[in-house]
């Protein structure tokens, strides 16, 4: 869906407006990223341990990156959030109650932007970039004869979970099917704009002109 590129452009757009921006992304915590990679290489992960690894990574980033950044007035752009864990847990047959309880410590985002896609659009994108991956295809679930079949069934399940959550949690749904990167970016900005808008706090006319000069000279 081009999430990464879209976020990169959003960051640039926000910084141009003078906002401080901090990015965080799924499984990117210092503590957990290598462990999660390692665990994925073996075939020993069960649904619940998988979800708990995600929760640990998330907690680490929440406490060490997200909350401190919010406290300092930054805008935090998070590439995936708790909903990813909810969708994957449910797609593996787990009940909603436990996993939501586990992530009960998470804070509610100001906006959840859901880049909606369908399987048809997803297929060429995944095959054309890094290829199908064991876990992203739900191979642990034995859903189909090969990677391709499994991928289709698994991703359909994931999409269905996201669609259900979009209603439940009132996601901002941004359609990506047959739309250009540019159109999607415009759509995203329109939805973010009201959330980050703030009144001008500094009255420039009250500043001592000499102070301004001094700053410029340095």
């Amino acid at each position: 869906m081009g999430r990464t590129t879209q976020i990169e452009r959003l960051r640039n757009w926000l910084e141009v407006q003078g906002h401080g921006v901090v990015e965080t992304g799924w499984t990117r915590s210092e503590l957990m990223s290598s462990l999660i990679e390692l665990a994925k290489e073996g075939n020993t992960l069960t649904r619940d341990t998988f979800s708990l690894l995600y929760a640990t990574d998330f907690a680490e980033r929440l406490e060490n990156q997200v909350i401190p950044a919010l406290r300092s007035g930054f805008i935090v752009l998070s590439d995936r959030y708790v909903y990813t864990a909810f969708a994957r847990h449910a797609a593996r047959g787990g009940g909603p109650e436990w996993i939501r309880g586990v992530f009960g410590f998470a804070i509610v985002p100001d906006t959840v932007l859901y880049l909606r896609t369908d399987l048809e659009s997803l297929l060429p994108r995944v095959i054309g970039s890094k290829g199908m991956d064991y876990w992203e295809s739900g191979m642990d679930l034995h859903l189909g004869e090969d990677l391709y079949d499994s991928f289709c069934v698994y991703q359909q399940r994931i999409i269905a979970e996201y669609e259900a959550m979009a209603k439940e949690y009132k996601f901002e749904v941004v359609d990506t099917v047959r739309r250009s990167m540019e159109e999607i970016q415009q759509d995203l900005r329109e939805r973010i704009e009201p959330v980050v808008r703030r009144p001008r706090k500094v009255d420039v006319s009250l500043l001592d002109p000499k102070a301004l000069d001094a700053k410029v000279e340095r």
Binding site: L52, L53, T56, E60, E63
Partner: peptide
């Protein structure tokens, strides 16, 4: 770098 939360979650894992 472990906090009470990550400590708890690691043990649960």
């Amino acid at each position: 770098t472990l906090t009470p939360l990550t400590f708890s979650l690691l043990h649960a894992t």
